[in-house]
């Protein structure tokens, strides 16, 4: 009677039950590893065969072309504007809306009116080829345009037509 347990073990040994396994539940584990790999590799696989070019905002609008070379500057130096324009716009908004201050002295000591539509978009009238280039590339959706109009002249012309 005592040998019955050993007999079971012997029978199992013959079937290869005790052979050192590579992995227990190997199928499930491999599925798990594939899921892990897919998650990590997602950005790699997503971009395969796509040559992503860096966006280049265009600064050749009529208003800018009219300016002489020396005058072709923004309110602050270009590297500053590239990185901090959103901060500047927030500051402008706060000063205009909360303190009724509308004058901004740029780095060239020239005074500008703090206004997105009337000052910024005066020169940068090409929303699609200027603002949107980098914003689309970086996946940024600024909420400026929930209130402001990004093409004021076209918008005004459209309104006039409607009224007629």
């Amino acid at each position: 009677m005592a040998d019955e347990g050993n007999k079971v073990v012997d029978a199992l040994r013959e079937t290869g039950f005790f052979k050192p396994k590579k992995m227990y539940d190997g199928g499930k584990v491999i599925v798990g590893i594939i899921i892990l790999f897919a998650l990590v590799a997602f950005p790699f696989l997503y971009n395969v065969g796509k040559a992503a070019k860096a966006p280049e905002p265009e600064i050749d609008t009529p208003a800018i072309k009219k300016l002489s070379k020396a005058e072709r500057v923004c309110v602050e130096p270009r590297p500053y504007m590239k990185v901090n324009h959103m901060k500047l716009l927030t500051d402008w908004r706060d000063q205009v809306v909360r303190q009724a201050k509308r004058d901004y002295v740029g780095f060239t000591k020239k005074t500008y009116t703090m206004s997105l539509q009337n000052t910024c978009l005066e020169c940068h009238s090409n929303y699609d080829n200027f603002c949107n280039r980098c914003h689309t590339y970086s996946g940024i959706t600024p909420h400026c345009w929930t209130c402001h109009v990004n093409k004021p002249k076209e918008w005004a012309a459209g309104k006039l037509k409607e009224e007629k």
Binding site: N47, K87, G139, I140, T141, H143, C144
Partner: peptide, 28 residues
């Protein structure tokens, strides 16, 4: 993911818009 993918997949702007729902400050 928006930094690693070009174009940005559809769910990333959705997650962002929910995440910045209150629209405080710029950038939100």
């Amino acid at each position: 993911l928006k930094f690693f993918t070009e174009p940005v997949p559809f769910f990333v702007p959705f997650v962002e818009s929910v995440d910045s729902f209150f629209q405080i400050y710029v950038p939100a």
